[in-house]
Design a protein around this nucleic acid. Structure first.
Length: 763
DNA sequence: ATACACTGTCATACG
DNA sequence: AACGTATGACAGTGT
């Protein structure tokens, strides 16, 4: 049995977790959050397999239920609902569109800078770029809750615009970003404002600088502003910049923890470098191969599914972070934001800013590689609209290549500079505005529904119904139970004492014979046993006293032993009315009603005890420790029938409490499971977000490397002052940090070797 | 009248 | 062995 139980328990738990992880969460949720009735059925009903779970295990931890779990849960849910509403309200009203706009603006310069001009990008990254980046990120994140899935969105969205520009930013995101999440909203706003200003400034300044100027900056160290002479192993010293230095800088800017891959990737650049295309087409080739190269490692479909699941799961987090999440990161957004430049598109105002930012970005990029962009861009632009429906296409998008393309604003498609700007926001905006928003709102509703209204109401019901139970405790003169059962075990104290106390209280007013159970076989014996004990008079007195003022009794616990009355649980009125004809018919009516009512609340055992004239309360019978209980019994001369009844009462009473505890435990277990599932889903979503972030960062790093590579390679000149053909030569990043210009064939061979290595590792 | 939920009780197993 | 507890199953009751 034990093993079976364990098996069931673990199995069910695992199954539940599996379900949640697989994405079946909905079912669980509906069950747990919005379908309490089924739960109850599970709990109470025959569908016990589920409940079988860890009750034994829980026993230890759940022991000592002082409070009814239902009530607790109800409280939690109501609180949660209230908070959720507040959060939502906050969301609706407090998230200014300007924030988003600001963010976009801010991003704009960065993206353009980094994307188009590697050298300048470096400088920016190291200095202002970094700061800017961190600022916006913080701001965005601040708006989100700690674990808000929006975090994901914002990160993606925020990062996306900059394109390949900020590795440092990425690093920041990945590294410190988590801790920043808790920033206050206010701070965020401030940051946003600041960013806005910065962005505006940058926008102003950037246009002024021509492509040439930017290109010149290539050799400038971002930090020192120092320029480096380039030295090429081949003896072509004409190159003005030091490849090593460039790469070193590049490396420095990419402190990624995952950079274990980095060197390989860089070296793979050589492979990626287009061999056939001439300088004009070079860049084009360069980009695509490099990006595509990374695609293989990741299962695109899986990632897409992950993203989808993120969106779903993030809904769970909404409970706590609904507002920002919903606002900034619509369920469908993670993807769209990831791959698109307009993460916050839902807000229409963003469009203009987007356009501006994108324009700049595209411009810069175009400067760098006008023709090349067509590849990635095309894929991205076409894919973006498909985001919602076309998984495969998205999958491809998710791949490094497409992602890269996504990062490059759609406008980049060849024309870039002027035209690109305005177009970008629209498609995305349309997606986000309509489908995404709808989805968001639906999710929002679903979340709310699932969590609050239904559950809360049902819990409420439970509570009410349960209050029947708790009623006992509330009604019961606590003093009675406490005093009488003073030494009783703590475990049984609350519920048992309450019930018994209530019964006694009600009994005080109940009238004999009014109860349907009076016909019990046991009652028949009562008459005989009646005479067994002879203190009726005093008992009745005390009994009345106790019922009239329970506290009194509690103050005088010893009195119980003195004035025991078989009819302890009979109300004074009950005694009178039952034994004697009602003195006055006027009073009788109201009294009878009252008595009936209270009588009905008396348990069967109480009725029986009363009928059998048991000289002490059921509470005592049930809750007294064995020793005291036996002691109590020994004090009275009780008939066999009475003793039997007392023992039954004790047994039943204890079992009753046990049953109540058992049911509470069941409910708690289910609720805990629910929470666990939610937590797991949250964790999963978080991990997926992180994964996405890493992938994105990786993409960006590769893009950056690619662009730097292009820059460096493009500046190399042979002895005759002619540029090297990318088809014949490639730059190779050596392990010692040096960069070599080697023949293409050699580079390809090396690249292939490196490709095989990881594969072998996997195997 | 029926279904459902809640509660109490019994039987049983376990510690 | 007695006692207490846990829990499935069933029945009674109320809605």
């Amino acid at each position: 049995m034990l093993s079976l139980k364990k098996y069931l328990t673990e199995g069910l738990l695992q199954f539940t977790i599996l379900l949640s992880l697989i994405g079946v969460r909905v079912d669980v949720d509906t069950y747990l959050t919005s379908q309490l009735p089924p739960l109850r059925e599970i709990i109470l009903g025959p569908s016990s397999a589920y409940t079988q779970t860890q009750f034994h295990n829980l026993r230890n931890t759940l022991d000592g239920y002082g409070i009814h779990p239902k009530s607790i849960d109800l409280d939690n849910y109501f609180t949660a609902r209230r908070l959720l509403n507040q959060v939502r309200a906050l969301d609706r009203f407090q998230v200014p569109t300007t924030e988003v706009n600001a963010w976009l603006v801010h991003r704009d310069p960065e993206g353009s800078v980094s994307g188009s001009q590697p050298s300048s990008g470096l400088a920016l990254e190291s200095s202002s770029g970094l700061q800017d980046v961190t600022g916006p990120d913080n701001g965005v994140r601040e708006s989100e809750t700690e674990q808000g899935f929006s975090e994901d969105l914002e990160d993606l969205g925020a990062v996306a615009p900059p394109v390949s520009g900020d590795l440092t930013k990425e690093d920041i995101d990945l590294g410190a970003g988590r801790e920043i999440f808790d920033y206050s909203h206010r701070q965020k706003e401030q940051d946003v404002d600041k960013e806005l200003r910065d962005g505006a400034e940058q926008e102003d300044t950037w246009p002024g600088e021509g492509a040439e100027a930017l290109a010149r900056n290539l050799l400038v160290d971002g930090e020192t502003g120092e320029s480096f002479p380039a030295q090429v192993p081949g003896g072509e010293d004409q190159t003005a910049l030091s490849l090593e230095e460039c790469l070193r800088l590049l490396e420095a800017t990419c402190p990624f923890g995952e950079n274990a891959e980095f060197p390989a990737d860089i070296s793979s650049i050589t492979e990626a470098v287009p061999s056939e295309s001439e300088p004009p087409g070079l860049q084009n080739n360069l980009l695509s191969p490099l990006l595509t190269g990374t695609e293989s490692p990741f299962d695109l479909e899986q990632q897409w599914q992950d993203l989808m699941s993120i969106m779903e799961m993030q809904a769970m987090e909404v409970n706590t972070s609904t507002s920002e999440v919903l606002y900034n990161a619509p369920p469908g957004d993670p993807l769209s934001t990831n791959y698109s430049l307009a993460p916050n598109t839902p807000i229409n105002q963003n469009v203009s800013l987007h356009q501006a930012s994108l324009g700049g970005c595209s411009q810069d990029f175009s400067l760098f590689s006008p023709e090349v962009e067509s590849l990635p861009v095309a894929s991205s632009s076409t894919l973006l609209p498909l985001v919602p429906s076309n998984s495969t296409s998205l999958n491809s998008t998710f791949g490094s290549t497409n992602l890269a393309g996504l990062f490059f604003p759609p406008q980049l498609n060849g024309t870039a500079n002027d035209t690109a700007g305005p177009e970008l926001p629209d498609p995305l905006g349309g997606l986000l505005d309509e489908a995404m928003l709808d989805e968001i709102s639906l999710m929002d509703l679903a979340i709310e529904e699932g969590f609050n209204p239904v559950q809360a109401s049902q819990l409420e019901e439970e509570f009410d119904s349960d209050s029947g139970l708790s009623l006992d405790s509330s009604h019961s003169p606590s003093s009675l139970s406490s005093s009488e059962g003073s030494s009783s075990s703590s475990s049984s104290s609350s519920s048992s004492s309450s019930s018994s106390a209530s019964s006694s209280a009600s009994s005080s007013f109940s009238e004999e014979g009014a109860v349907g159970y009076s016909s019990d076989s046991e009652t028949l014996d009562l008459e005989e046993a009646e005479g067994a004990v002879g203190y009726q008079p005093e008992y009745s007195k005390f009994c009345r006293m106790s019922y009239q003022d329970p506290s009194q009794l509690s103050c005088l616990p010893y009195l119980e032993h003195v004035g025991h009355n078989h009819t302890y649980n009979m109300a004074p009125s009950a005694l009178d009315s039952a034994d004697l004809p009602p003195p006055s018919t006027l009073k009788k009516g109201s009294k009878e009603k009252q008595a009936d009512f209270l009588d009905k609340q008396m348990s069967r055992d109480e009725h029986r005890a009363r009928a059998m004239k048991i000289p002490f309360t059921n509470d005592k019978i049930i809750n007294l420790p064995v020793e005291e209980f036996n002691e109590l019994l020994s004090k009275y001369q009780l008939s066999e029938a009475q003793l039997s009844l007392i023992r039954d009462i004790r047994r039943r009473g204890k079992n009753k409490m046990a049953a109540q505890n058992c049911r509470k435990r069941k409910l708690d277990t289910i609720l805990n499971l629910e929470r666990d599932v939610e937590d797991l889903q949250r964790d999963k979503a978080r991990l997926l977000r992180e994964k996405v972030e890493f992938l994105r960062s990786l993409r960006q790093m590769k893009q950056k490397v690619q662009s730097l590579y292009q820059e460096v390679f493009g500046r190399l000149r042979d002895e005759n002052g002619r540029p090297y053909s990318p088809s014949q030569y490639a730059l190779q990043y050596a392990g010692d940090g040096s960069v070599l210009l080697i023949p293409r064939t050699l580079a390809d061979q090396q690249a292939r070797r490196q490709e095989r290595k990881p594969k072998d590792r996997r195997k």
